[in-house]
Computed example of a mutant assay.
Amino acid sequence: MTDSDIHDTIRGLYEGIVDPQAWQRSLQNLRRASGSTQMGMVVLDKRSDRMSVIELANPVEGLAQAYQQTFQALDPGRSFTPRMPLGGWYIDARELGVGTLSRHPFYGDFLHRYGMGSVMACLVDRQPYYEVFFSLQRPLDGPLFAPEDARALDWAIPHIRQAMALRERTSALTALQRLSMQLLDQLAFGVIVFTADARVLLHNGEGEAWVRRLVPNPAAPRMGTGTGTGDEWTLSRPFAAMVRAACDASAPVPAQAAMAQSRQGARAQVVVLPLPPSHALGQAWQQPAALVAIHDARGSSPLLPQVLRDLYGLTPAEMRLATLLTTGIGLPEASEQLQIGRETSRTQLKSVFIKTGTNSQAQLSHLLTQLSATLKAPVAEPNGAS
C-alpha cells in the first residue's frame, strides 16, 4: 500500500465510528492489500463457546453462514485462541503446517468448497465474555498466508483496535441517549430545553406541539392540534423574557411560571427553570439553558386506575370517583356524572381518603396528579395493537 492508501485507510477506520461506509471502505483496502478474497470480524462468545461473523468485506456467498452453523466446530484455529496475545496473529500454514492444511476436514469439506485455501486472523479485542478476531481468507489458487503477510498489516491493528473501542463507546452513548429520550417520552407532560435565544435543544413527545405554541413561526400557517382546540395560545407573560431570565449566567431566576390559554379556553401551566452551563447539552455551547415543563388540564391517565388498585387497594367504584375528581369538578358534579347518590359518593370518598392517606380533595388531587405525571397512555399501533 502507498502512504496515501494507508492514510486513507486509517482515516476511514476512525470515520467508521459513525459512518459504516467509511469503515467498510477501509476493510476493503486492507483486504485488497493482503491479497484476500474475504475479510471479516469474528466474535467468540466465551459463555456459549460459539463463533459468529459480525462484519464482512467482499463476502463469499454462503461461507459465513456455513461456518457459523456447521464448520466452526472443526476450525483448527480455535485451539490456538486461548494462547494468543492481543495483537497476535494466527497463521494457519505456520501453526498447522502445509501438510495438515491439505488433509484437515475444515479445509477439504469446507474452505475448499468455497474456493478458499488459507486463513489468517489477529486478536483485536479480549473481554471477559468475548473475543474479537480480524480474520482474512485467501483463495485456493493463491499463496498461503505467511508471517510477512501479518507483518505487512501490523501498522493497521492498533488503529482497528482503537476505532473498535471508540465505536463501542459511541454505540453505548447512542443507546443511552435513546433510552433517555424514551424515558422523557414516557412523561405525561411536555418537556423542552431552550437556549437563551429560544433555540430548541431537545423536547419529548408531549412537548413537540408546545414548541410551536411557545415560539411560533410567523411564516408558518396556523395549524390545529387535531383535537379541535387549535394551536393559537397566549401566555400571561412574555415567554422569551422568561427564557432569557432563566439563562442569565450571572443571576438566573430560580423558577418562573405563566398561564397559557388557547382561544377555545383550554389552559396549561408553563414552568421555566434554569439549567447551568454544566448541563449535559452545554458542551457545544458552554452556556446556560432553560428547562420548560408544561402541564395542561387534560384528564387523568387511563393507566391510573390500575396503579391506584395496586398501591392502595381502591375498588372500581372508588377508582372512578377518585380519577373523576382529578379533573377539578366537585363532589356533587361527580355524583351526577357517575349517577350515584350524594351519600354514596361521600362514603366512597371517605374510604379513598383513608386508603390513600389524604385528608382533602386538594391533597387527593395532588397525589393523583403526581402519579399521573409518569403514566402516559400507550400509543396504539396502526393495526389497533398497543
Rank of each mutant, 00 (worst) to 15 (best):
K46P: 03
P20K: 10
T2P: 04
L187K: 02
L56Q: 10
P305T: 05
R320M: 13
R167K: 08
F71G: 07
G384M: 10
Q306Y: 11
A255L: 14
Y67R: 00
I294N: 01
G99N: 13
L235W: 08
D248N: 15
T229N: 09
V379P: 00
H112P: 00
N204W: 12
A280G: 05
L325R: 09
S372N: 09
P332R: 15
A260M: 13
S300N: 06
R222T: 14
V352D: 12
A280D: 07
R178P: 00
E208M: 12
T81N: 12
A322I: 09
L153P: 04
L331W: 09
F239I: 09
D3N: 15
L214G: 01
D109I: 11
L13E: 03
R263C: 11
T229S: 10
C247V: 14
P378A: 13
G62R: 09
A246Q: 09
T374N: 05
F110K: 01
P139H: 15
A156C: 10
P382A: 10
L153H: 10
Q361G: 04
V253N: 07
L184R: 03
Q137I: 11
G99P: 00
P20F: 04
G282K: 06
A172I: 12
T344Q: 15
L314R: 14
V60Y: 09
A152S: 14
M41S: 03
V307W: 14
G88I: 01
L101Y: 03
D141M: 05
G35K: 13
P143S: 15
R151V: 03
G384A: 12
A322M: 06
M181W: 02
V200G: 03
T225L: 12
F353E: 09
G77E: 07
S171Y: 04
R169G: 06
T234A: 08
L338P: 11
D185P: 04
N58Y: 11
R83C: 08
G40T: 06
L96E: 03
Q24D: 09
D19K: 08
P218L: 09
S118Q: 06
V272M: 02
S250Y: 07
T225P: 00
R237F: 12
S26G: 01
Q177W: 02
G142L: 03
D92M: 10
L371H: 03
P277M: 12
Y14K: 05
A293N: 03
F194W: 15
A175P: 00
A209I: 14
P20I: 05
S365K: 05
L30E: 01
R298M: 07
G330T: 14
L140M: 06
A146M: 06
T100Q: 14
L349D: 08
D310C: 09
M39E: 01
T326A: 15
L235H: 05
Q339L: 14
T344D: 15
A172F: 14
P76R: 08
L308H: 02
L123E: 05
R263I: 11
H279R: 07
T37F: 08
K46S: 07
A268M: 06
E318W: 04
A257Y: 08
L96R: 04
M223A: 15
V124A: 13
L311A: 06
N204T: 13
D3R: 15
K350P: 02
F189M: 11
R151K: 10
P128I: 13
P143I: 06
S52I: 02
L27C: 05
L235N: 03
L325N: 04
I329R: 13
R113I: 01
L144F: 14
V193H: 04
R31S: 05
D109L: 12
I91M: 03
F106R: 03
